[in-house]
Design a binder for these strands. Structure first.
Lengths: 211, 211
DNA sequence: GTCTATAGAGTGATAGAC
DNA sequence: GTCTATCACTCTATAGAC
């Protein structure tokens, strides 16, 4: 059994048994959803008895929280790094394209983790949910910042910056819902297409439009 | 207790008890997800005992299927009606704007139903799922058709029609995930914003861009 | 740290009275 | 057509041996 894409996000978790449980849980939650997943299923995927799960995690929800937190941290980091060191730089179009490319590619490449991250929020405990919301706001702010700078620089033409930022965000996130490695497009191709679409949404004057 | 938006989709269902169960199930599935919802919860919302549910529906899954089928039929109908009688007409931009406005408004106004429709597909039985997929393909085809005509007429500038249609579709559907009646935008306002964004994505020459 | 065994609570669905 | 009562099963989580 290969763990593929998921390893990247959780490869650093120790001890080994805790990591195997986490990998099993990500796959199970993504396939069936949190509530339909049994602790027996998770433990089985990790090659352990159901009881062993509780040595490493207090509850099933704690396992979900761990996945959600690491997943959110990774996706925010990817977005942050994509525009790092370019703030205030002249080329807002390039910044937006980089941000969308990176964010979309993460959601496609890590679609298993991303599905849990994006669609199992409601299963989190109240306190855990509150912690996650902080991380989610961060990505919205990054994207909105790029759009605001582009408008200020006269590169973008946007009447509703907040709404457009929300829409671009939504477009990227929804990739996790429909992406399949068996589909006709690679994460890179989708990233390219979506970067162009985001520039169009931002009213970038030369985006895909012949003069 | 008011049922609000949900009544519109399922108001015609008879007998009365079957309709009340359906309304309770939509709300419960949207709030907690299919697997986390108990038959006791559904029956309770309908003011009945758990056993009464099985007089009207064979299983809990059949209840979900009914909701999913009616919901899909409604959303496809809304999309179809939005462009009805305009096929081959000159103004592709107007057709696209109408389609996106209508489809987005449906997903916002009927966000409770739409959430079940869009996010509980995996809980359907194999045979029921196959029936639903047919309906889903229909909406993709309608949207792609509008884009193809616009390109052929020279109104749109799109390099990847299939990919762009998928993206516009995805943008509309994801409204069901984040929309809240307590949010700062009405379904109408989101529809307007998204219609403009879709025109930009389609490379409509005058969309929001000053000449 | 992992196991077997099981407690204790809840689940979907059915039986039979009315 | 709806109820009360309950079956047969599964669930999360824990106890205690090793």
């Amino acid at each position: 059994m290969t763990t593929g894409e998921i390893d990247e996000s959780f490869g650093g978790v120790t001890p080994d048994a805790a990591r195997r449980l986490l990998l099993g849980a990500v796959r199970a939650f993504a396939e069936r959803g949190f509530h339909a997943t049994t602790t027996r299923d998770i433990a089985g995927r990790a090659g352990m008895s159901p009881a062993a799960l509780y040595i490493h995690y207090k509850t099933k929800e704690e396992l979900l929280f761990h996945i959600s937190r690491v997943g959110h941290e990774r996706s925010v980091a990817v977005l942050e790094e994509s525009v790092a060191g370019t703030a205030g730089a002249a080329d807002s179009a390039e910044r937006l394209a980089r941000a969308v490319r990176a964010f979309v590619r993460w959601h496609a490449e890590h679609h298993t983790t991303a599905r849990v991250v994006q669609y199992e929020l409601a299963a989190l405990g109240e306190e855990h949910y509150a912690q996650i919301v902080v991380l989610r706001r961060r990505s919205e702010e990054i994207l909105r910042g790029v759009l605001e700078e582009g408008v200020a620089a006269g590169e973008f033409d946007i009447s509703d910056i907040r709404g457009t930022a929300l829409a671009v965000m939504s477009l990227c996130i929804d990739v996790a819902r429909w992406f399949s490695p068996e589909g006709r497009r690679t994460p890179e191709e989708i990233g390219e297409l979506y970067a162009d679409l985001a520039l169009r949404m931002a009213g970038h004057r030369t985006a895909g439009l012949p003069a």
